[in-house]
């Protein structure tokens, strides 16, 4: 267990948490707006303050989402035949003793998650900025309101699944976003093609 391999840089870890925390706070305040919940507004210091926080956190989220491109986009866009096999066996998540095709640095599900986040994160951010900065423009605001909320529905499904899979569903994964490293053996089993690449590169 002693030999470790680095899966995420300090920058990636920091950016992940900026993204995650801003997203979760946006979502909580978002629910506050969506259902006009006094209690949530009170936690954020009143509805007026909640609007400001939601809007400025939107900037934080957008910048962080943009920076994440440098962390994950390249790996997320690299597909091969093993990804199809991964989909065919649903990532092995439906079996107690799964046989999973060899994966690169990100498995197929992680790639899809990142692509979905990039698409719907961009959509929710752009639509949010339009609602914020072009108020009163009925056509733009109606479209943006629709897109903001469709994206919200998608994210509220995707993000909890990500959190589950990155924590208790896959022991050993969570530490990546704390220390950045994983045991070599663990990585060789879960991301063999990535480990191969690493050793070829050496």
């Amino acid at each position: 267990m002693s030999e470790m391999v680095r899966k995420a840089s300090t920058f990636e870890i920091l950016n992940h948490w900026v993204l995650a925390i801003s997203c979760i706070l946006l979502a909580i305040s978002g629910y506050g707006f969506l259902f006009k919940i006094e209690g949530i507004a009170a936690v954020f210091g009143g509805a007026n303050m909640m609007k400001d926080i939601h809007n400025y956190l939107g900037i934080v989220f957008s910048v962080s989402l943009f920076l994440s491109i440098f962390n994950w986009l390249k790996d997320a866009l690299t597909f091969d035949a093993d990804d199809i096999k991964w989909i065919a066996c649903a990532g092995g998540y439906l079996s107690k003793h799964p046989k999973i095709p060899p994966m690169g640095k990100l498995n197929t599900g992680q790639k899809f998650y990142y692509i979905a986040l990039l698409v719907f994160g961009t959509a929710i951010a752009v639509s949010g900025f339009i609602i914020w900065l072009l108020p009163g423009n009925k056509t733009y605001v109606l479209w943006s309101h629709l897109i903001h909320n469709i994206s919200f529905v998608v994210l509220m499904i995707a993000v909890p699944v990500h959190i589950y899979l990155a924590t208790i569903a896959n022991p050993g994964t969570f530490r990546i976003m704390i220390y950045g490293t994983v045991p070599y053996k663990w990585a060789a089993k879960r991301h063999p093609k990535w480990i191969q690449e690493l050793s070829h590169g050496k």
């Binding site: 629910y31 998540y93 439906l94 529905v153 499904i157 569903a169």
Partner: peptide, 25 residues
């Protein structure tokens, strides 16, 4: 949908954890 979806995947995750369980090393 915004809460049915969220509630649904949380419930599905719990169910998955109980029925199939985590991917142990």
């Amino acid at each position: 949908l915004s809460y049915i979806g969220l509630g649904g995947v949380v419930a599905a995750s719990i169910l998955h954890y109980l029925v199939i369980g985590p991917h142990k090393e």
